[in-house]
Nucleic acid binder design. Structure first.
Length: 287
DNA sequence: TGTGTAATAT
DNA sequence: TATATTACAC
């Protein structure tokens, strides 16, 4: 029974994070001051919201994220490329954009530069994408190896290095499109036109971004677990996910707030098998 | 010049 | 630990 097989590509647009969700990401990448200083904006965003007027005071008051004198030291002479960006955090949202971009480019066109352009996330560099792509490819390779070869034969989790298991966390948060796992013959990879999400305006609540992000991520992890048992077409039944979590519940270093109870949640979801509860991975607004 | 990969650094 | 950076081959 193939009810509504992988029309993932017809739904992908819905699943894209809303501007509100993406906004904090850009904030972690570029401080309002920076964005203002260099007039950095999303090419898809024709009209950026009116930037906050810089505080008239010439003193460095909140040195919180004046970090490293980003502006004062170099701003004025050197272009933005010489500045050190804050470390990019690949959130599930951002990763999903990445996956979507790769999927819609087709595996063969998915090169860092193109992916970066498609994602159209301001502040994202080719290096960012290249680095992430590097890891993502390794992940895909492992996935293929497990689904085609003897996925279960004793080896399984034993073959995973601790590092792999850890990084799978992120990658597992977004389903891997079939095109990426099973690249069809040339010509069959016709993809829908990409509809860039016009988002990413700069807000001003820089400091809250981190907290908001953390909160979001928690949400994701919770939702994500309920999501695993769901795909109607059995699209991702590699039996991988169920194993993937075994070595994974050891996190909490980042968020000492809530005791994660993922494992049980997941096992009940996959173990039930029949219980198909489709949770949208990303709150689209009516969720 | 851009890419892929591995190693290494932060 | 996750991501960035670097080096090098193609």
């Amino acid at each position: 029974m193939k009810e509504e097989e992988p029309n993932w590509f017809s739904r992908w647009e819905e699943e894209l994070p809303s501007p509100e969700e993406l906004t904090p990401l850009s904030q972690t990448l570029i401080t309002p001051d920076l964005a203002l200083a260099f007039d950095i904006r999303n090419p898809n965003t024709p009209q950026a919201p009116p930037p906050p007027p810089p505080p008239p005071s010439s003193q460095h008051h909140s040195a919180e994220f004046d970090s490293a004198e980003l502006g004062s030291a170099t701003a004025g002479d050197e272009p933005a490329r010489t500045l050190k960006r804050p470390r990019l955090v690949w959130t599930p949202q951002l990763h999903k954009r990445f996956v979507d971009a790769v999927a819609h480019l087709g595996i063969k066109n998915a090169v860092p530069k193109t992916i970066m352009q498609l994602m159209s996330v301001d502040g994202l560099t080719r290096e960012n994408v290249a680095s992430h792509l590097q890891k993502y490819r390794l992940y895909l390779k492992r996935m293929q190896g497990m689904s085609t070869g003897n996925g279960s034969g004793g080896g399984g989790a034993a073959g995973l290095s601790p590092t792999d298991a850890a990084t799978d966390h992120l990658f597992a948060s977004s389903p891997v499109p079939r095109q990426l796992l099973h690249p069809g013959p040339p010509g069959s990879d016709h993809f829908l036109p990409f509809v860039p999400v016009t988002a990413l305006q700069h807000h001003q609540q820089q400091q809250m971004a981190a907290a908001a992000l953390a909160a979001q991520q928690q949400q994701f992890h919770q939702r994500q677990m309920g999501h695993f048992g769901s795909p109607p077409g059995g699209q991702f039944d590699h039996g991988f996910f169920s194993r993937q979590t075994v070595g994974v519940n050891r996190m909490g270093a980042a968020m000492p707030a809530q005791p994660p109870a993922y494992v049980e949640d997941l096992e009940s979801a996959t173990g039930g098998g029949g219980g198909r509860k489709v949770l949208t991975l990303f709150p689209t607004g009516d969720d």
